[in-house]
Write a protein that binds this DNA or RNA. Structure first.
Lengths: 233, 233
DNA sequence: ACCTGAACACCGTTCAAGT
DNA sequence: ACCTGAACACCGTTCAAGT
């Protein structure tokens, strides 16, 4: 809790507010900044995963000393938080289209959310630990509003949202963790076959070989939405 | 890939097979063993979380040198795998009760699974990364069998299982991550109120204050099972 | 067969300075 | 206001020995 800017909230609209001393940088590197640190952290995370992010490595990539980072950032945890929020940015509520098809709307929102996280595979497993950034709240608000307008009762609303949240998080984390290496799963499935008697059902259905991630996600989401759908008795 | 026992499969039934040299330990500490290491690792993880597990700390707790662990265990990853599998043990398929209520059966299985993971809060977020232990496979097999017997078509079976998996994982990881600190969530909810206009719907529904985890889990599971239920046209 | 200490190549972060 | 190097208290793991 010093005079460092780390804890301070950023400008509301950093893009439009003019810089106080605009003609300040004489030459060379634009020097360190919070934005640059976060952007580079995302790059590094994308390239090397959660374990690959290192304050030292981050500083190297920025061409600065390690300790210089700590002027702009509280600590490593802070870097994670900022990187996560940066990645979950979203365009805000889209045009207020009064679609009648709430199911398509919800499915689209959640597929977009998932796609965003899969573009940065480290983000999904990080998210539940720090769920409260403004971007996530915005997404939850939009989801909530859509469901409410669709006729989900107030009594069911929170359960509905958390159900969708749970489903999306579980699906995305699993997909990102099982990762691109199909070999592992093929090997696992073969192990099933070798074990023969013990797992006949999942062996027969080839559960571990299912690689239509997008289709499976959508199918399960449909199951859930079926159950969620407000009964029009 | 040396002569170390690390990679070797354990005895099929370690509890019933007699020890080769039963009267071998002359006195004192039972010395190191794979079982003791894993059990202590689980203790340490329960007490200190994922970041709290340290090879050095583990050795300390076992009263041995750090490097002694490496005789019984490949590396730290291995310790995680073993600890996770140890925690997900389950009693195998229960008595073959031919219950007609497949929904209650499935719900019970998944609630048990979730409860098991919540008893060791570090386990849930670890599981998707290493999903293939025999105990997990056993649970998936049982789930698969139950759904199949209930009338879920082969075409829907994998999607159904992955949906339930995703939901349970997401719910458990979220619950374990948000953790016992209600204060955080209360603070977050208050922040919502302060922000006022931006998140009216989730503020009104008090989404972030919902702390009936078990009830919400069950409710969402019911939504999903509603959608999953085989249509009897 | 089982255990050990020293050493290596790393970490995140504190602190006291520099400009 | 912003950046820095040295230092501290840690990590996981290799290696060459010990018994």
């Amino acid at each position: 809790m010093s005079a460092k800017p780390s804890g301070a909230r950023k400008n509301r609209s950093p893009r439009t507010s003019a810089q106080p001393q605009p003609a300040q940088e004489p030459r060379g590197e634009p020097s360190l900044s919070r934005e640059r640190i976060v952007a580079t952290a995302v790059e590094l995370l994308d390239a090397a995963g959660v374990d690959g992010l290192t304050m030292r490595g981050l500083a190297d990539r920025l061409g600065s000393g390690v300790m210089s980072l700590y002027w702009h950032v509280d600590n490593k945890e802070d870097v994670f938080d900022l990187a996560l929020d940066a990645v979950l940015d979203y365009g805000g509520p889209p045009e207020i289209v009064e679609s009648r098809d709430w199911r398509a709307e919800v499915a689209h929102m959640l597929e977009d959310w998932r796609a965003n996280m899969l573009r940065h595979p480290w983000s999904a497993s990080l998210l539940p630990r720090r769920a409260l950034g403004p971007n996530i709240l915005g997404r939850l608000e939009l989801l909530s509003r859509t469901l409410s307008k669709a006729g989900v009762t107030d009594a069911d609303l929170n359960a509905a949202i958390w159900s969708l949240w749970n489903y999306v998080m579980g699906a995305t984390i699993t997909r990102a963790s099982f990762g691109p290496s199909d070999d592992d799963r093929a090997a696992a499935q073969q192990r099933l076959t070798r074990l023969g008697e013990r797992y006949p059902t999942i062996e027969r259905s080839r559960l571990l070989l299912d690689d239509d991630w997008d289709g499976t996600f959508r199918k399960g989401l449909d199951f859930l939405l079926d159950g969620l759908a407000p009964q029009r008795s």
